Computed example of a mutant assay.
Amino acid sequence: MRVRFSAPDGAWRDWAPALRAALPEADLARDGDPAGFDAIIYAPGGDITDFTPYRRARIVQSLWAGVERIVGNPTLTQPLARMVDPGLAQGMAEYCTGWVMRAHLGMDAYAQDGVWRNGTVPPLAPERRVTILGMGALGRSVAAMLGAVGFDLCGISASGRAVSGLRVHPVGDLDRLLGQAGILVCLLPDTDATRGLLDARRLALMPRGAWLINPGRGTLIDDDALLEGLAQGRPGHAVLDVFHREPLAPDHPFWAHPAVTVTPHVAAETRPATAAPVVAENLRRAMDGRPILHLVDRARGY
């Protein structure tokens, strides 16, 4: 099996040892005759922009969970698989649980200024509604960890497909459910249907003081609408890990806003040690003619 690795230069150093250990039968290469490759491992920033010459390739395996930067490439006719990595899912669940707990317990309410503020006690987790917008693999991982804490969970997905132990609603119920979302966790992909989904009208439906946590995609939220909503207390605080343009510009108003916490796209990282076995399994499946895992639906964009 001859495999082309197309990713930014620094990625090769990190990925090559893990891929060789997980897929010892493969001949990994960073360049060569396109017609000679059986598979492509891809990350945005790599040198392949035209997939037409890779006629023999049976799979393009993305190293990223999000595929918006490749799925619309008209030269890509090979099957495309997105990354669903247990390490990435664990990292996302830990990030979301940490920030949900901070919001739930009101950790920012206790200024270290000598004032004894014991008049407000947070509710217990079952009394707090946490709404998860996006119930793919990452959403389910987040729900499992938050469910173990005991939160009152509600899921929203494009399909409304059932998830064991969780109430899941179709996205058509979003407006109604936003009014009940004490904490909203956003994990939707970047598609035509999700861009700008949280606009001024929808943000105004959130309860006053609610928290919005977005480690999914920056395009989900209208930035100007969010700033206006924060001024009205709907939401009361936003934790943002993803943005329309990254890195976030140093003069962007999010940095200095007292009701915004910026984190630099660190919620979930694809880790070679846990992701390389996923790549290996999928490439073997493609070579054997078996169903490919996490195959991207081109029409839906994920």
Results as ranks from 00 to 15, higher is better:
Val3Lys: 00
Phe5Gln: 13
Ala29Leu: 05
Gly36Gln: 10
Ala57Phe: 01
Ile59Val: 15
Leu63Trp: 00
Glu68Asp: 15
Arg69Gln: 14
Ile70Thr: 08
Asn73Ala: 10
Pro74Arg: 13
Thr77Gln: 12
Arg82Lys: 09
Val84Met: 00
Leu88Tyr: 14
Gln90Phe: 10
Met92Gly: 10
Glu94Ser: 04
Ala109Gly: 14
Val115Cys: 13
Pro122Phe: 07
Leu133His: 04
Leu153Met: 09
Arg161Val: 10
Gly165Leu: 12
Leu178Arg: 02
Leu184Pro: 01
Leu187Cys: 07
Thr191Ala: 13
Thr191Asn: 13
Ala193Met: 07
Arg195Cys: 10
Leu198Phe: 14
Ala204Phe: 03
Ala204Thr: 00
Leu205Lys: 01
Leu205Tyr: 00
Met206Val: 05
Pro207Gln: 09
Ile213Phe: 02
Leu220Cys: 12
Leu220His: 05
Leu220Pro: 01
Leu227Asn: 04
Gly233Gln: 08
Leu248Ala: 04
Leu248Asp: 06
Ala249Gln: 12
Ala249Thr: 08
Asp251His: 07
Pro258Val: 12
Ala259Thr: 07
Thr263Ala: 09
Glu269Ile: 15
Thr274Ala: 01
Val278His: 00
Ala280Asp: 12
Leu283Met: 12
Asp288Cys: 09
Asp288Tyr: 09
Ile292Asp: 07
Ala299Arg: 15
Ala299Val: 15
Tyr302Trp: 01
